[in-house]
């Protein structure tokens, strides 16, 4: 668990962070979202004391971090950097093994853990003996992630971890990332300026502007209960796509056709609208069977899906 209480930081005359407070629950992913220069990185770096705040307090698992030795604190927190920051003079294996070596793990343990991680992160075995500059951007980013995860820290901080990647690579890594079992057990604070990425990965989003918190809430809350014009406008550009991602079949269940009987395979109603559309597009048949909370099965086609979605939208607006 991470808690920030009234954290502020000034660089000369620039108020980079101003009275920021939030809580991240155990195993929750909080995404700091905002335009460039709004203080996200500064906020993140104060959590592992790369930057010391001017005011306020930070607790990790109810312990004030200023009472801890910074080096010990940092060894217990995974950190993925915006610029990856791999050590150019170390091989990939050595880059990953760095913190375990500092912690004096034995060789066997380091080796088996490294093997486990490169499999999970889909890194070819041969890359272990290579140097960072010999890897593609996507591979480097995976190594950066492996390095942060190797000691299985309970807290993970990530600063625009996919920022340096091209669109295609980014989308596929995001997906893998979301599916990684290992990440589901961690308390994560992640920074991004990309709204879609935030919606894809966040349990909750902390929207920031000019060093201050504008709104904290689930993606759905941000979409449907924006606290002010800034929050509303921030999402406006991608609104429809975001809504498709945030809303799932279960949400629009009542607006879909009557239940049917179907013995074959069916999809969970936790599917987002976006995912349902992707499935329909790639299906050989025009309809999809989904099973709701009460095991009831419904058959939907593209037209029924969009119609149900629109009815749900209308209901939200008039609520």
């Amino acid at each position: 668990m991470i808690e920030l209480k009234g954290i502020s930081k000034k660089f000369g005359d620039t108020q980079a962070v101003k009275q920021v407070s939030f809580k991240v629950a155990e195993k929750e992913t909080l995404v700091l979202l905002g335009t460039s220069g709004c203080g996200k990185t500064t906020t993140l770096k104060m959590i592992n004391r790369l930057i010391e705040p001017d005011g306020g307090q930070i607790f990790i698992n109810n312990e004030n971090i200023t009472n801890q030795d910074p080096d010990v604190l940092r060894k217990g927190i995974g950190y993925v950097m915006q610029n990856i920051g791999l050590f150019p003079h170390y091989t990939i294996a050595e880059n990953i093994a760095l913190v375990p070596k500092l912690l004096k793990w034995d060789k066997e343990k380091i080796k088996s853990r490294t093997q486990e991680l490169i499999q999970k992160l889909h890194l070819p075995e041969r890359t272990l003996a290579m140097y960072p500059h010999e890897l593609s951007g996507g591979q480097q980013q995976r190594v950066g992630l492996a390095r942060a995860l190797v000691t299985d820290p309970s807290v993970l901080l990530m600063d625009e971890p996919f920022g340096a990647l091209d669109n295609v690579t980014r989308t596929s890594i995001q997906k893998e990332f979301k599916a990684l079992e290992e990440l589901k057990r961690k308390t994560i604070v992640m920074v991004t300026h990309d709204v879609q990425e935030a919606f894809e990965l966040a349990d909750r989003i902390c929207l920031m502007d000019k060093g201050e918190v504008v709104q904290i809430g689930t993606p759905k809350e941000l979409l449907y209960r924006p606290i002010n014009d800034f929050a509303r406008n921030f999402l406006a550009g991608k609104r429809l796509a975001l809504e498709f991602k945030v809303i799932n079949i279960q949400d629009i269940w009542t607006y879909l056709p009557e239940e049917t009987i179907h013995k074959g395979e069916s999809k969970s109603a936790n599917l987002s609208i976006w995912e349902a559309m992707e499935l329909l597009r790639n299906n050989d048949r025009p309809e999809l069977f989904v099973s709701g909370a009460d095991q009831a099965i419904k058959s939907i086609n593209f037209g029924q899906l969009t119609k149900g979605f629109n009815q749900y939208q209308n209901a939200q607006l008039h609520e």
Binding site: P70, K75, Y79, M81, Q82, N83, G85, V99, L102
Partner: peptide, 14 residues
């Protein structure tokens, strides 16, 4: 590279 130095600090190196 500043980022490399920062990474080293963030890893908890003294």
């Amino acid at each position: 590279d500043q980022h490399v130095k920062e990474a080293a600090r963030a890893m908890g190196m003294s």
